[in-house]
């Protein structure tokens, strides 16, 4: 079951390499949050109740509901329905996304030989998700898509943590959650300001601060 969920997590990010619709991005972010919640439920017998409730809140309330809702609000306010004219054309994105996704399985094989304590499949999918999230950040022009790329990166980091069965102290977990929530709030706040300053919130508009060597 957990292998099916992990593959579903990866398929979601692969689908993002093929699409340009904002609604799909948000749906995939929410789906990944929910899969992370189910993976926490799977480990219910191995973690203490306090940590379980914290992680359940983080994945179900924050990653599945709050983050997608906040992103959706900005998308509807700024009327950005899709990522138009990315740096790499759609066909190129499909090819690169597929290659990266398949490379994740190669990583799986490599990790299973190096460190048997790591959940190799989840590790491989997390690594390919991270690479595709970076790809989205680097190749998409809309600033909101870049924020979504960042949130996908955070989901990949959660899967990576789960694959390594690493538990950070609760104080650190709380700090991380608070930081990421505040960061998302700041992203969306400044995105709103950028939208009211420039007609279009695209990376190409942010070019006034440049130096010549």
């Amino acid at each position: 079951m957990s292998q099916f969920l992990t593959i579903l997590f990866g398929v979601g990010i692969l689908y993002l390499a093929l699409t340009s619709r904002m609604r799909t991005y948000i749906q995939v972010i929410a789906l990944q949050g929910f899969i992370l919640f189910l993976l926490i439920v799977r480990d219910i017998g191995h973690i203490d109740w306090f940590t379980f409730f914290f992680l359940a809140f983080e994945t179900l309330a924050f990653k599945t509901i709050i983050v997608p809702a906040m992103l959706w609000r900005v998308v509807t306010r700024t009327h950005v329905a899709r990522e138009a004219d990315p740096h790499i054309p759609q066909f190129g994105s499909i090819v690169i996304g597929t290659v990266v996704f398949l490379s994740g399985f190669a990583v799986t094989d490599w990790v299973s030989r190096i460190d048997p304590s790591v959940d190799a499949l989840a590790f491989g999918i997390a690594v390919s998700t991270l690479i595709i999230a970076f790809f989205i950040i680097l190749t998409r022009k809309k600033l909101i898509t870049q924020v979504m790329g960042y949130m996908l990166m955070q989901n990949a980091v959660s899967l990576l943590m789960s694959s390594m069965a690493i538990e950070l102290p609760l104080l650190v977990n709380l700090g991380v959650l608070l930081d990421i929530f505040t960061l998302l709030f700041l992203f969306l706040l400044f995105l709103g300001k950028l939208h009211s300053t420039y007609e279009e919130t695209s990376r190409e508009k942010l070019t006034s601060l440049r130096d010549q060597p």
Partner: peptide, 16 residues
Amino acid sequence: QSSLEATWKYVFICSV
């Protein structure tokens, strides 16, 4: 306008 651009770059690049 330049402050807004610098802020976005600062927050985004540093956070990544």
